[in-house]
């Protein structure tokens, strides 16, 4: 029922799995920005090629990756349809005031492709990086901003905790749902107000459970001497290896390629 691939670690020891989380986060950021700079068809070979390379380096079965696209299917359809109808140009097919144009179809297709590649690459980040490594990486990347008052360690801890408890809360929600169904609960009812009321018997116990867990966690952390981020040493130290060098070079080459094509066209 609650199957979300985004943010689910896929265990492995591939090249991409062993790249430092900081490198992977930055690479994903660069990719997400540059994918929107690309406008020419040649550029799309470049972004698609980079995505394929990353997929190959992750050794994750393509089917698993494609399954992760299912939640955005509706966005893809809307993007494609919206662009196909709204872009002026050579009419391919018309019905009343609605026209599908060649330019619209091409533009919508490119937009949809962009979305697919973006989701594929970002899910590669979360599939090849454990949530813990991801927050470690983020904390390190945000550390320079600590001088400006950004509580990087606390933010990272909050993220770790949130990630850790998402599956727990899903399980809890399912359990509560079953218990209320056993008492004859009906979830499919008419009207938004009735719908809200029907959900109360699930949401209230879920919140109560979340607060109970938070209390227990706070006590457990204090009992083990947690006093905040200052002066904490870490069990896992992040270290760059040759893999990070290779990844950085690949990202740089990709970015340079995109800029070069932009200049050619410009």
């Amino acid at each position: 029922m609650f199957n979300i691939t985004l943010g689910q670690y896929y265990p492995g020891r591939s090249f991409l799995h062993q790249v430092d989380p900081r490198t992977k986060i930055l690479a994903t950021l660069v990719y997400s920005v540059f994918i929107f700079l690309v406008k020419e068809p040649e550029g799309f070979y470049l972004v698609a090629g980079f995505a394929l390379l990353a997929m190959a380096a992750s050794r994750i079965p393509p089917l698993t990756l494609i399954r992760g696209l299912r939640p955005i299917l509706i966005f893809l359809v809307i993007t494609l349809a919206f662009n196909a109808f709204m872009t002026p140009g050579e009419t391919l097919w018309g019905w009343g005031p609605f026209r599908v144009t060649r330019e619209g179809l091409a533009f919508g297709g490119l937009m949809a492709l962009r979305l697919v590649l973006l989701v594929l690459v970002t899910s590669l980040l979360t599939l090849t990086t454990t949530p813990i490594a991801l927050t470690d990486g983020l904390e390190r990347l945000l550390r320079p901003f600590q001088r400006l008052g950004l509580p990087a360690a606390e933010l990272a801890l909050m993220m770790t905790i949130a990630l850790r408890f998402v599956p727990t809360l899903f399980d809890e929600a399912q359990r509560i749902l079953r218990a209320q169904q056993a008492r004859g609960a009906r979830l499919r009812v008419r009207g938004p107000l009735a719908q809200m009321q029907a959900l109360l018997p699930i949401l209230v116990p879920l919140f109560v459970a979340a607060f109970r867990r938070a209390d227990e966690l706070a006590v457990a952390m204090e009992a083990r001497g947690y006093r905040g981020g200052r002066g904490r040493t870490r069990m896992r130290e992040l270290r760059y290896t040759w893999r990070d060098g290779v990844t950085a070079l690949a990202v740089a080459a990709f970015a340079a390629g995109v800029v070069y094509l932009r200049l050619l066209a410009g």
Partner: peptide, 21 residues
């Protein structure tokens, strides 16, 4: 299924965790 659930009452583990009213 509501009739089934009326005739067979199921009390889960820690049922007080489902109280909401």
């Amino acid at each position: 299924l509501t009739r089934v659930r009326q005739r067979v009452g199921l009390v889960f583990q820690y049922p007080e965790h489902q109280l909401f009213a």
